[in-house]
Design a protein around this nucleic acid. Structure first.
Lengths: 213, 213, 213, 213
DNA sequence: GATGAATGAGAATTCATTCAT
DNA sequence: CATGAATGAATTCTCATTCAT
């Protein structure tokens, strides 16, 4: 029991450090963030941070990767909701669209984008990892759903990955535009409008071809 | 004449410093970049950098703003090409699309995005300025062209700004996706494909409504 | 006990830094002194200086204040010696005079004067603090003693603060004059002569009025 | 004529630089003062300062020496006023006392003291020169007057230099005490009181011995 | 394992001083 | 002679990282 408790305490401490690190990195950027502040936010002493994660770079990698995992999970859960679309295809797609926009306009997701972008040239492999988790997987999961819909004749046939890319682009592009690169919060009304417009355009472009006879 | 030469020399040096600064900031990121390296790349002594631009922040602001101006000019020039679309609308839009992708996939534009994103929380006003120059103006210029086309009955009527947002989203979203957030170069073939797909989707969604009779 | 040792070590280090700082500031002046040299003299690394005292200004303030406290204690101890003057008033006053001159002609006191004077306009509040500790308190302590003597009829009545001011002036004025503003050491013989002359003048001026009858 | 005008202009410029230098040195201290600011105050370009006075040290030496000369002249003029004391010795001495206090409490004299003190260890020879001009010469000039008075039987015989030292000490000591080392201005009323008290004490101590018969 | 203390390396910034005009 | 521009040399301060306890 003691052992379990101790391990748990240790794990908790590690989690606290990673969470604090993400917060501070998001607040200051990689280089401007200092380990001191992270330790303070985590409520531990500086060397404890070094005991758990070897150096600043490692700390950054783990904090960012953890955030990317969380965002990935959220995104995939949203896409999963369209597995059984029901009769109203538009409604189902709008549900996904709103869900994704909610995730993308959240604090964590914006910070993640920012940090990853910022360190693109410094830690290119990390950028790859994040991109894989948040963008590639999401696109593929969505492509899977769209492929099913095409097969069922509810969408025009075509490259489902390309369709998924475009569906996501119609969401994130206007969102980014309206949030000023993610600096400003975007009102619920506005994300709603973006979602509606995206689905509308998508459905117009991907409605099944009229049957020839 | 002497004065002109001297001034010219001074202006040249200032330009050299700003160019070097943008290069080094792009290579290392804001905080990791050191003024020393910028001075070396510019071929001047460190204090000369401080004589021309008062401190590191100022240097960053000017370097980024100058790059944003250049990108803005390039983008607007591309959009201008669609002012007289000719008979083949699809060809005209594909021309714009390819032109914009060429700009956006260029080194400078990617660095600019990266730097701006990275310092979003630190220099929010700078992010605003860049966003205004590169995104807002571009969207509006494109919206102007699309509005004319709608008026001429060659596109479905609707909010032209929204249409422009979506047109641009269909370009930059997939581009970003395929370049891994902008880390990798994207082949000409791929940008070509993205442009074609974007225009195709856009035209399907925005073709004029069939006339009722 | 371990804790005690550690604390003691820390306190020792802080003392060493303050002592080194005073030495180096005295040697070079505030602005010319560099923290590097202070650290070397203290036998620690530069950042250790910053860990203990936050910046150069703080370091200066603490070093000077500590010196002022030490000088104040010495001066007050000397004045205390005249609490029970005995029969020979002249001897008692000469004792005080010599004691004070010894303190004032000492290295620390001269450096303190110099540093305080030098930074009068830059750190006026520090100058106030030093003046209060070294000059005001001393004058008042001496005034207390002189008041008692006047009450006992051994000195002419009058404003004791003014008398104390003048007593001290008769010591420090000529001392400063002979030491060339404190640059040169003054020989014991000369301080002796100054003390004797000061007491002589003081007693002539403050001898009790001849009793009227 | 051109030559004369030119020389005059050159001399004026040099004076302006020295005056500006004294002002700025007084405001900031030697090391904190920067040549740039001095040039601005003097209304010339930085290299012009270097053309006239070779380097910062030289600039400081000349500026301080010039100020010392001016102060010396003022002091000596005041002492000269007691050459023909008239019947009322007390009045004559009070006149000198007030005159000297007025000089010593002036801005220039305080700045001069400050700067000289500050650089005592860095430029000891400069301190000597200032001390000689402002303190030694003054003491000797006053000693001359006091010697004449003693010879005339209006003061007790004794070492006139010592008497002069004490007379000056009774003025400057209390003045310094009340001005907080020269930081604060001293009201006219207070300098008046200091002068009166000094002369009173001086006359009590130096009145002629009652004649034996 | 956690921490208070210490430090080596490095970065921004300033400034006296010198060229070239 | 006066000056705009450039620079070499310092200096303060910060921070990731490591010991010793």
């Amino acid at each position: 029991m003691t052992g379990a408790t101790a391990s748990r305490g240790r794990i908790d401490k590690r989690q606290a450090i990673l969470a604090a690190a993400f917060t501070v990195f998001a607040r200051r950027g990689y280089a401007q963030a200092c380990v001191q502040e992270i330790a303070e936010v985590a409520g531990v002493a500086k060397p404890t941070v070094y005991n758990h994660l070897n150096d600043k770079e490692n700390l950054f990698r783990h904090a960012v990767t953890a955030a990317a995992d969380a965002v990935a999970a959220e995104n995939l859960a949203v896409v999963e909701r369209v597995r059984n679309p029901g009769d109203d295809l538009r409604a189902a797609l709008e549900d996904v669209a709103r869900g994704l926009l909610q995730v993308c306009s959240g604090q964590r997701c914006r910070s993640l984008r920012q940090l990853t972008y910022a360190q693109l040239t410094v830690f290119p492999d990390l950028a790859d990892a994040v991109h894989e988790r948040t963008s590639v997987r999401l696109t593929e999961a969505l492509a899977d759903r769209l492929a099913r819909l095409a097969l069922a004749g509810r969408l025009r046939a075509g490259d489902p990955t390309e369709a998924a890319e475009q569906f996501l682009a119609l969401l994130t592009g206007p969102l980014e535009h309206r949030s000023g690169l993610g600096a400003r919060e975007v009102s619920a009304a506005e994300t709603h409008a973006v979602a509606t417009a995206a689905v509308d355009t998508f459905l117009r472009a991907y409605r099944p071809e009229p049957v020839q006879h």
